[in-house]
Write a protein that binds this DNA or RNA. Structure first.
Length: 964
RNA sequence: ACCGGGGUGGCGGAACAGGUAGACGCGCAGGACUUAAAAUCCUGUUGCCCGCAACGGCAGUACGGGUUCGAUUCCCGUCCCCGGUACCA
């Protein structure tokens, strides 16, 4: 009987489906464990070998935990709303609902091939009305909530209204507009529209005007994390700033808790770092400067600085070109220059600013007054100061800040040195360790100590306050698109009215055209039935549905609630979340915020969604190139041949090694000879030879060697290709690139599964290296893993003899071997080191083969520890051994430690080393036992002479360690 | 520039807490079986040196130093690669 993986895999996949083996109950006495993958966006391209990496890892872990006696929730779903489906609809006229459905079916087929243990009864799709009903519902709760900074949690807006009626907003300054201040009496006097306007400035989901990232090509607004260097993440189109009415999430209210929460979760340092940087918390002071010739009661110039210690090094002020004060303070004399400058700034796109960092600016003509020295400080404007951060104005300290320094040099402004020798006059020095000079009451202080003192003085004088700032802005939450969740909002003039929750879901209407609305709104603005109800025409962004999907898996069919409290209490946090790093500051931050919000409002019992996060690395493509010759030459007579040569149409290729000789006379000669041979015409002379590298399908290249016949079949235009060979072969060039259809370097898991089976494929993906690591794909080694499974199979069956396993009694060395293997595999699996887990299994099977051990008791244990890695073959062997039930529920074998104890003989010895367990053996050691050790040191000799060491320790079962 | 991660054979990678570096697999070389091939199995495979032989000697985990009886592992400095951020005051 041979190892027939395709029969085995088909058989057990069917069996598991029929028996509902992967169905998970919310009602179990076993401890729970929740393993979740980042659900995929079902793109049309299907899966390549890079995608399942994380899924295989989580599948192994989920199966392992199940064997260990846990009730494991391991679901899968689809992040089905999004731009590409709509883009595809525009290009191909296929409705997003249809293409999404097709793509999902294809994904599912590919996933099933690999044999995952997902509980498909719990599948979620964000585009399903039964799902987005609750996305809309949560949005409404956000809309109906505000953030109480005193209690540090979200609360219902009704509470806020009650507070306003009692005390106005003095206790709770407006987060959206600090200028809004009113008393209880005033509140009562406001009309409905004014009240709603004010409340909008408090809501956690709010609508407002703001600078947004507008992408003309995509016709929509994008969140900050969807913009990379001034281009859209999807498609790479230019993005510009635009002022638009938009929905936002007030995520900035959660900034501190998002930061603090990082300390309670198990994420990689890199991930925490990225989120921390994104939030960008900084400590400093806000300082008010009086402006010369404006009476003191008038507007002050408010700046934000993290370095109030440098207050006496201020040589000028810089305000953003968009700063509201700019019109008021610019003097008549400077006005023409200013108008010109502002026009220039407006003409520059975000991209241009980033690409060429020019030093530009314009003097306003106005002066600020230094609060301590009374000096007059010129106020400039420049595009390097951003309107959106801090107060949009800075105090410039050129001796300490590189940008200020360059600005000062460029415009020839004087530079005050407040740090003595620490400033060399050639470049700014941002140190905090220098001793201050020329700094009045701060003289002689070390800068970092001066910070608090400076703030105290500012606060005492009433001209400044301690201030915390964040880099993170509120998240843009609306898209001018069709394929997303509609907002359950009806517009009355100037007032956003939430839809009654009973009317949810507000279903997305079916449309055929996806163009923008009459005023640049989303396609929904073209739907009469929609606009006649005055419904919001924007839709929600991609991250809406993915911000809470982990909760829906717990209770996917609930029509009364997004997730029952009982279900969310039972399953709790996601114990293990697996996915790529690309969602570091998008999805992960948003879903953490939503979770905190739901916790605040008491809908769930924890405020971090993911207990542990593992980021799988990217599988890169290993591209292959063929080298094509482009010839120009001088053939005689035959006109058509000349045409061919001049037209560069000949499919001539050259092996990589020869291509690398390009430019040498040998190369020229070789190619000329080659062409002469082809045309059997020695009179041909080549004028020039160019070599161009072309991507070739990696699947027709074996290692570096091109399969020439397959290549000729690959493209009809290459059917008559001719090759300049090396050693009779045509070698390709290679390069590691992103895996992509366009580069012909994708490898389809379907092909590998068909050829080697799902079990081999799964184990090989893991064997490649640590899950977290990025690495180029290389199919070469898969044979080795496949050989392992066949070798394993031969422990049970022999091609000629048939069944070889027996029920004979197991001998000690055999026990030792299997228990050592169990221990190694278990430890490796536990710490997520699946490559070493596979290795340990291989070693185990090699050893059992060497021992010729085919005993049922041993093999039974082997099969169970194999199950997470290669479930199909494990199930088959489990049954062939005569076991009942499914191996999926077999108990994980326990290690009998007594078989693992090593003898004390022949250990090398170490002295004064670190400690280990199992003191007893060495401490009780008799002289004879000690002599059996390898003794090499006088310390040990002294021991034998009657001066026992303080401590003798076993190290790693391999070495004795002596502490004198 | 800043922050984070990392440099180990021909290659992917092991070495869990400082304790025999190179497990396991690929590749390569040689051999067995076979008319032959496939499949399978065996032997060797960090480098250099010695030898009839050995569980022989020396060097060796990017480079230079340090701590330690002992360092791939810890500390300092240098170089290189990858990922993130980028006028955030």
């Amino acid at each position: 009987m041979e190892y027939n993986f395709s029969d085995i895999e088909k058989k057990w996949q069917l069996y598991w489906t029929k028996n509902g083996s992967y169905r998970v109950s919310n009602d179990s006495s076993r401890p729970k464990f929740f393993v979740m993958d980042m659900f995929p966006y079902p793109s049309g391209a299907g899966l390549h070998v890079g995608h399942p990496l994380g899924y295989i890892a989580s599948d192994i872990y989920a199966r392992y935990k199940r064997l260990k006696g846990f009730n494991v929730l391991h679901p899968m779903g689809y992040d089905a709303f999004g731009l590409p489906a709509e883009q595809y609809a525009i290009d191909h006229g296929i409705h997003p609902a249809v293409s999404t459905e097709n793509n999902i079916a294809n994904f599912r087929r590919q996933l099933d091939n690999i044999g995952f243990c997902f509980d498909w009864d719990r599948e979620v799709r964000t585009s399903d009305p039964g799902y987005y009903k609750w996305t809309q519902w949560i949005f409404l709760q956000l809309f109906k909530s505000w953030y109480d900074k005193k209690a540090n949690k979200a609360k219902p807006v009704e509470d806020l209204v009650a507070l306003f009626e009692k005390q106005g907003n003095t206790g709770h300054p407006c987060p959206g507009d600090s200028g809004i201040r009113f008393t209880a009496a005033e509140w009562k006097g406001f009309d409905r529209r004014r009240r709603e306007e004010i409340l909008m400035n408090y809501r956690l989901a709010y609508c407002g005007y703001g600078e947004v990232n507008w992408c003309e090509a995509l016709g929509t607004v994008l969140a900050n994390d969807e913009v990379i260097n001034g281009f859209s993440e999807r498609g790479g189109h230019p993005v510009v700033k635009k002022k638009l009415r938009q929905w936002y999430l007030r995520i900035t209210d959660y900034a501190d808790r998002l930061l603090e929460g990082l300390e309670t979760v198990d994420f990689s340092e890199a991930m925490k770092e990225m989120q921390t940087n994104w939030i960008g918390k900084s400590f400093g002071a806000e300082i008010d400067f009086d402006i010369l010739d404006l009476s003191p009661s008038d507007e002050k110039l408010k700046v934000y600085t993290t370095r109030p210690d440098t207050l006496f090094g201020v040589d000028f002020m810089v305000i953003a070109p968009e700063h509201p004060l700019i019109g008021a303070i610019t003097t008549a004399g400077q006005r023409p220059a200013m108008d010109e400058y502002i026009a220039y700034v407006k003409s520059r796109s975000e991209r241009e600013r980033m690409a060429e960092k020019k030093i530009t600016g314009c003097f306003t003509g106005a002066f600020a007054i230094h609060p301590f020295s009374g000096l007059h400080i010129p106020i400039w404007t420049s595009e390097y100061v951003l309107a959106g951060y801090g107060t949009g104005a800075i105090m410039a300290v050129p001796c300490g800040d590189e940008r200020d320094f360059k600005f000062a040099r460029h415009f020839d402004l004087p530079i005050t040195n407040i740090i003595g020798e620490a400033f060399n006059g050639v470049e700014a020095n941002p140190t905090k360790d220098a001793i201050l000079e020329n700094s009045d009451f701060l003289d002689g202080l070390v800068m970092k100590d001066a910070i608090v003192i400076a703030i105290r003085h500012l606060e005492e004088k009433g001209i400044g306050i301690r201030k915390v700032n964040y880099r993170m802005r509120d998240a843009a939450f609306s898209r001018q698109r069709y394929w997303g969740e509609p907002f359950p909002i009806v517009w009355e003039p100037g007032i956003a009215v939430p839809l009654d929750e009973k009317q949810l879901p507000l279903e997305l209407p079916h449309i055929e055209k996806y163009g923008p609305g009459p005023e640049g709104e989303g396609p929904l603005a073209n739907v009469a039935a929609w606009t006649s109800r005055h419904l919001e025409t924007n839709t929600m962004p991609g991250y809406a549905g993915s911000s809470w999907y982990f909760l829906r898996y717990m209770d996917p069919h609930n029509n009364e609630e997004f997730c029952s409290r009982a279900a969310s209490d039972y399953w709790g946090q996601v114990d293990l979340y697996i996915g790529g790093t690309e969602h570091a500051v998008g999805h992960l931050l948003y879903s953490r915020m939503w979770t905190k919000f739901l916790f605040d409002r008491d809908y769930i019992g924890y405020d971090e969604p993911y207990k542990r996060l593992v980021n799988q690395g990217m599988i890169q493509g290993s591209s292959r190139f063929v080298y094509r010759l482009e010839l120009k030459g001088k053939p005689v007579e035959m006109a058509d041949r000349q045409g061919k040569l001049e037209g560069r149409n000949e499919p001539f290729f050259v092996s990589a090694g020869i291509a690398s000789m390009q430019g040498t006379p040998e190369f020229h000669q070789l190619i000329e000879l080659f062409v002469q041979n082809i045309y059997t015409d020695p009179s041909i002379e080549l004028e020039s030879i160019n070599v161009s590298a072309l991507h070739v399908d990696v699947n027709i290249v074996d290692g570096m060697e091109l399969d020439i016949e397959a290549f000729k079949r690959w493209r009809s235009e290459y059917a008559n290709a001719e090759f300049v060979l090396e050693e009779g072969k045509c070698f390709c060039g290679s390069e590691v690139e992103k895996m992509s259809k366009r580069l012909y370097n994708t490898v389809n898991p379907d092909d590998l599964v068909a050829r080697y089976g799902a079990d081999t494929f799964r184990m090989y993906e893991m064997f490649l290296g640590p899950v977290e690591q990025s690495k180029p794909w290389d199919t070469k080694g898969i044979e080795g893993v496949h050989r392992f499974l066949r070798k394993l199979w031969r422990l049970f069956f022999d091609e000629t003899k048939g069944k070889v396993w027996t029920t004979e009694a197991v001998k000690d060395p055999e026990w030792k071997c299997i228990y050592r293997t169990i221990k190694k595999v278990e430890e490796a699996t536990e710490r997520f080191s699946f490559n070493t887990g596979v290795s340990a299994l291989m070693i185990g099977v090699n050893e059992l083969t060497d021992l010729k051990c085919s005993k049922k008791e041993v093999l039974g244990k082997l099969v169970v520890i194999l199950t997470p890695y290669a479930p199909h073959v494990a199930e088959e062997l489990w049954h062939l051994l005569g076991n009942e039930g499914s191996v999926l529920d077999a108990p994980y074998p326990k290690v009998e430690e007594k078989y693992l104890v090593e003898s004390t003989k022949n250990y090398p010895i170490a002295i004064n080393g670190k400690t280990r367990t199992e003191l007893n053996i060495a401490l009780d050691a008799t002289q004879q036992q000690v002599e059996e050790l390898v003794l090499a040191d006088d310390v040990v000799k002294r021991w034998l002479e009657g001066n026992p060491p303080k401590k003798v320790v076993y190290v790693r079962n391999k070495m004795i360690n002596v502490v004198v």
